[in-house]
Computed example of a mutant assay.
Amino acid sequence: MPRMEDLLPPPARVYVAGHRGLVGSAVVRRLTADGYEVLTRTRTELDLRDPAATAAFLRDARPDAVVLAAARVGGIMANSTYPVQFLEDNLRIQLSVISGAYSAGVRRLLFLGSSCIYPRLAPQPIREESLLTGPLEPTNQPYALAKIAGIVQVQSYRRQYDASYVCAMPTNLYGPGDNFDPESSHVLPALVRRFHEARRDGLEEVVLWGSGTPRREFLHVDDLAAACVTLLRRYDGSLPVNVGCGEDLTIRELARIVGEVVGYEGRITFDTTKPDGTPRKLLDVSLMTELGWRPRIALRKGIASTYASWREAEESGAAASRPLVEAQ
C-alpha cells in the first residue's frame, strides 16, 4: 500500500547488486541523481553466488538498502541453451543477497523479478494476484522458477521477521547498456541489431522467429529506475508490484517500428517453425500508478535513443559480445 512517510529519504546508502547490467546501471544513475550514496562491487570483487563473501561484505558495508538487480538473463535461445545456469545462478544470487542483507541488519530491500513469473495463459492484463495460478511458459521456466523463489523468499522474510523487503516485477525492458548479442539478447535489442546489419549489408529481406503475432509490452529502463526509487520510498507490502507502461503491441508491429528507426527498407518475414513464446504478456500497473509513478519515455523515442547509444558503443569498441550474460 502507498505510504505517506518517506521510507528511504536521501542521502541513504544503497547497495546496487548488478550495477553493470541494464537495470542496475539505470538504478545507479537514478539514485545518484536523487542524492543517494550508491555502493557497488564488480564480480571480481564479490561473487554474489558466494553466501559467506556476500554476507561479510554487507556486514562491513552496512547499507541502508539493497537493490537486487543482479541476475542471469537472456532471450529464448539463451534460456533454452543454458537452463541450469539460469536456474542455479539466480537461486544462488538471491539466497546469498537476501539472507545476507537480513543478517547484516539492512532495513530495506528491493528484489527485481520479471513478468515471466506469471502463468503462460494468465488473464490480461496480468494482476499481481495471478502469481502461481497456472503453468509457466516452457521456454523460460527455469529462470521463472528461480525468480518465483526469490519472491517467496522476500515474502517469507516479511512474514517471519517483519523485514521491510519488497518485490518489483518489470515488464520487457530496453535501453542503454542492453545486451545486443545475437545469441542471448531479448527481442527488442535483437531486432535493432538485425535491422542495423541488414541495412548495412544491403539485405532485401530479414527473417524473424515465430509468427509475429505475440503481444509484448516494453518499458524503458530509465522509467523502471524511477519506479524502483518510488518503491523504496513509498511501498511496504507483500504483493510483488508490476512495473510496465500498460500498453502492448505485436512483435510484427514492433519489428516495423524498429525497422523504421534503424532505416531498413527491405522485407520483413516470419519463420513460423520457430517458437513464439507466451502469446501475450501485458501487466496491470494499477498498484504502481497508485504510488504516483508513470512512465515518461515513449517507445519510438526510446528505441531511437537506444539505437544511438548502441551505435556509439560499437564505434568506440565499448560494446561487448555476451553469449551468456554475466550475472553481476
Rank of each mutant, 00 (worst) to 15 (best):
M4F: 09
E5H: 11
E5T: 10
P11W: 08
R13M: 14
V14I: 15
R20N: 09
R20D: 14
V23Q: 07
A26G: 07
V28E: 11
R30I: 11
L31Q: 14
G35Y: 10
E37R: 15
E45S: 02
D47C: 08
A61F: 03
A61W: 01
A61V: 12
P63Q: 11
P63T: 12
V66S: 08
V73F: 05
G74R: 07
V84W: 15
F86W: 11
N90A: 08
N90M: 08
N90S: 09
N90K: 10
Q94S: 14
L95I: 01
V106H: 00
S114E: 05
I117V: 15
P119D: 06
R120Y: 07
L121W: 07
P123K: 05
T133I: 12
L136T: 03
G150F: 10
I151L: 13
V152P: 00
Y157I: 00
M169Q: 13
P176A: 09
D181T: 12
P182F: 01
E183N: 11
E183G: 07
S184T: 07
S185E: 06
R193H: 06
R194T: 15
E197R: 10
A198M: 14
R200Y: 06
G202H: 04
E204N: 10
L219R: 09
L224C: 02
L224M: 08
A226R: 13
L232G: 01
R233I: 02
V243A: 07
R252I: 07
T269G: 12
T272N: 02
T273S: 11
K274W: 04
D276F: 00
G277R: 02
L282I: 13
V285L: 04
V285M: 03
V285S: 02
W293P: 01
P295V: 03
L299A: 06
Y307N: 12
E314Y: 03
A318W: 10
A320L: 14
S321G: 07
P323K: 04
V325R: 12
E326P: 01
A327P: 09
